Simulated scan of single mutants.
Amino acid sequence: MTREEKSVVIEELTAQLGDNAIIYLTDISGLDAVATSNLRRACFKSNIKLAVVKNTLLEKAMEASDKNFGELPSTLKGNTSVMYSETGNAPAKVIKAFRKKSEKPLLKGAFIEEAIYVGDDLLDTLVDIKSKEELLGDIIGLLQSPAKNVISALKSSGGTIAGIVKTLSEREG
C-alpha cells in the first residue's frame, strides 16, 4: 500500500469515526470463512457495519478525529474489526449471540456517545445499555401514568369534582 493509498484510507476512517457515535472494536481472528460470513450477515440484519482495519491506520484516524477515544488506541493489537451502529447495545447483542457458538468475536473496546469501554469483560454491561428509543419509551410511559390515573378517576367517579377528588385521594392513601 502506497503512502497516498494509506492517506486516503486514514481520511475515510477519520470520516467514519466522525460520523458514528457508536463504535465497537473487536477481534474476529480465527473465525473461518463460514463463521465470518455468518457474523457479517448477523451484523447486516442488525443494521451494523463491520469492517476489518489495519491498526496503525485506525490509530492515525483516531488521532486525526475530533473525538477523544481515551484508552481505545491501546487496544489496537492483533487483528481489529470495527463495528459501526446507530444503536448503542446492538453490536454487543450480536457479539453475545454469536459467542454462543464460538469464542469470537472478542470485544476490545467501545466508544458509545463519548463514553469509553475497554475490555471483553464489559460485554454484558454493554448489552444492558438501553437504546435511545427504549429510554424514550420508558419516559413516555412514565409521563402517561399520571394522565391515565386522572382519566380512570374521571371514569370511575361519574365525572363530578367531588367524586374525582375522592377517587384520587383513595388511590394516594
Rank of each mutant, 00 (worst) to 15 (best):
M1V: 12
T2F: 10
T2I: 00
E5A: 12
S7R: 12
V8R: 08
V9Y: 08
I10C: 04
I10V: 09
A15K: 04
Q16D: 13
N20E: 01
S29K: 09
A33T: 15
T36N: 10
N38Y: 15
L39N: 00
R40F: 09
R41N: 08
A42W: 07
F44R: 15
N47L: 02
N47S: 07
K49D: 10
K54S: 05
L57R: 10
E59Q: 07
K60I: 06
A61P: 10
M62N: 06
D66A: 09
D66T: 12
K67W: 08
G70A: 11
S74E: 10
N79S: 05
M83V: 02
M83P: 13
E86N: 10
E86Y: 06
T87A: 04
N89L: 05
P91R: 02
F98S: 01
R99I: 02
K101T: 08
K101L: 09
S102D: 08
E103H: 13
K108F: 03
G109V: 12
E114T: 15
A115P: 12
Y117L: 09
V118E: 13
V118D: 01
S131C: 05
E134R: 02
I140Q: 03
G141Y: 12
G141Q: 08
L142Q: 13
S145M: 13
A147W: 09
A147V: 15
K148R: 04
K148P: 05
N149F: 03
A153R: 07
L154Y: 07
S156R: 04
S156L: 05
S156P: 02
G158M: 05
K166G: 03
R171P: 00
E172T: 07
